[in-house]
Design a protein around this nucleic acid. Structure first.
Length: 163
DNA sequence: AGAGTGATTCTA
DNA sequence: AGAATCACTCTG
């Protein structure tokens, strides 16, 4: 997919982050080296994937919130049980499901030579003017909900909501 | 607007 | 141990 929406989480500096209260068995990956996936399970049924960003000992991660399907459309349709291309990866749990990400990918490396990776698009698709910065989704009040740590391609029909 | 669903973490 | 919470999605 082509990523069209992400959110930043700043660990111990950020009450909205799973890492706010320091490392736990669940969050230890986020306190490890950058370039790995932090995949967590929530609401009894959903997986969501983050990219760990900070140096060892510092919890920082970026939640992958939405993507535009580019390849493997039929595989993603079957994983999602949905036909509409715009709903295949429009949301963090939808994206993870479309990509087939779950427990076994927690801690997986994204570095060169890995089976999962992120790469720059050779074509320039979006300019800075296409990207909006907003408050994050799904955080209760007082949990860092006022921070504008969500970046989204405003006009993309593949984002998790219209902006 | 509400239900579904179960791991994780905090409190006692 | 028990309870609260939850970086969500789908269906009405």
């Amino acid at each position: 997919v082509r990523l069209v929406e992400v959110e930043a989480y700043r660990g111990t500096q950020d009450p909205g982050s799973h890492g706010f209260r320091g490392p736990t068995p669940r969050t230890e990956v986020m306190f490890g080296p950058a370039g790995r996936l932090y995949v967590y399970f929530t609401y009894g049924m959903h997986w969501c994937a983050n990219v760990v960003c900070g140096p060892v000992g510092v919890c920082e991660a970026v939640l992958l919130r939405a993507g535009q399907p580019l390849e493997g459309m039929e595989l993603m349709r079957s994983r999602r049980g949905v036909d509409d291309e715009r709903l295949l990866a429009a949301g963090p749990a939808r994206l993870a499901q479309a990509m087939g990400l779950s427990r076994v990918h927690d801690g997986a490396s994204l570095l060169r030579g890995s089976r999962i990776w992120i790469e720059n698009d050779d074509d320039v698709v979006f300019s800075d003017a296409d990207v909006s910065r907003t408050r994050r989704i799904g955080l209760s009040a007082g949990r860092g909900d006022e921070l504008e740590y969500r970046w989204v391609v405003s006009a993309s029909p593949y984002a998790s909501r219209r902006t």
